[in-house]
Design a protein around this nucleic acid. Structure first.
Lengths: 223, 223
DNA sequence: TGTATGCATACTGTATACAGTTCAACTGTA
DNA sequence: TACAGTTGAACTGTATACAGTATGCATACA
């Protein structure tokens, strides 16, 4: 039986990732407490964890504050992501990691490329993140995985906007395919270079979407 | 006036960094509450934040547990550190960052190299961390800085053991000096390579010290 | 009409209480 | 002597209460 604090953490983390905690404003603890059917204490415990994860802000005397889409933050997180993912792939190359396990990933990528338009955005996001995590985990490092999962969560909103058009979907998964082709040929140098380029394009697109993301959130709070 | 939760966070974080919370055992909340002169609530709020920062463990029904020195974790954190720091320096190179501000760092490094034995270990640790952070911040990225500060805190204990001998001190700061020399000549390629080598050596030394660190902690708990 | 002030309400931070759980110490038995 | 079961103290998770603070709103004044 999970504790109330754990339940609160799961729910509030999901809300924070999706910008459902009021961006730039105080998070109303009493309202959340009624909404989640528990006292404020486990909610505050969960919010404290989310503060350390960069998913909620806090301010003395004010309490907890919903995070906002910030272009500099998106940029910084994509840079971190690029350095950790490319670094991991380079480490896998140096270690001569077995790439056989990527065949399943290649099959999935091909299946998506056949008809990118018929996939739910949330499935594509999941596949996108799984692809990148699988590559990084060719050089296993649980601590790096924790950081990447956090970075993924924090940029998921703009990343998903980046995959809303068929054009961008096709481009992204074709780039995945090219990376996988290189890896399956054990052409590590090409794979690392292709990954870096892919991440640079993704960062540029995501950054370009921060204004649109902010507009979406603004219209939500007007409603 | 800082809140009790903030005071608790500062104090408990310091204790966690120094392995003063019982490694592998339950953290006694009542004892801490008496010790810090406040109720358990702000202490639990602080401990929750430290859980998300990897400085404390938690287990359902058991509560909070002090972290241990783990060789795999040290290794993983050093890999992350290497990828982020080298990545940052590479970004600074690409951006043609101004290295003029490093002259002060070079002066400090030279001063330490004159008589490494006369410095308190805590000063050397601070200078070591400041050196690396200054290099990383040649390509400013506040989110990366947060991660690096956390990684530094988590490996500080073994890192400090690595600087307890004059031999290792001299070696480390000579490597700093070489990196700075390359940077002041705008030889970015050499600087990145020297930094990578330096970090690899540091990782190896730190990893070699995990057993000794574990022994130190074991003898503490026997006392 | 705009701004300042006062007040009431809502909210935060945290102390305390309590039900349920964990664990160390003890006892009985093989 | 070792081990399983029991017991009770200590501990955790969290609900509730409350003092202090933030904020929104109403009123007064320039």
């Amino acid at each position: 039986m999970r504790s109330n604090a754990e339940l609160a953490y799961t729910k509030l983390r999901e809300m924070a990732v999706n910008y459902e905690l009021p961006p730039g404003s105080r998070v109303n603890e009493v309202w959340l407490s009624q909404r989640l059917g528990m006292s404020r204490v486990p909610i505050r415990e969960a919010l404290n964890r989310l503060v350390s994860e960069g998913l909620v802000r806090s301010s003395a005397g004010i309490g907890f504050i919903g995070r906002h889409v910030e272009a500099p933050e998106v940029c910084e997180l994509y840079d971190i992501r690029a350095d950790l993912e490319a670094g991991a792939l380079h480490r896998a190359a140096v270690a001569g990691a077995d790439t056989g396990g990527l065949a399943a990933l290649e099959a999935t990528t091909k299946r998506i490329l056949k008809a990118p338009g018929r996939y739910a955005i949330r499935e594509l996001i999941a596949e996108d993140e799984a692809f990148h995590m699988a590559l990084a985990n060719l050089a296993p490092n649980p601590e790096r995985e924790v950081i990447l999962r956090n970075v993924n969560a924090r940029v998921r909103f703009v990343r998903r906007m980046n995959l809303e058009t068929a054009v961008r979907r096709r481009q992204a998964f074709e780039e995945h395919h090219a990376i996988l082709q290189a890896l399956l040929k054990n052409d590590w140098t090409s794979a690392v270079n292709l990954l870096r380029s892919h991440l640079a394009v993704s960062a540029e697109k995501a950054l370009g979407l921060t204004r649109a993301a902010q507009a979406v959130l603004a219209s939500r709070s007007d409603a």
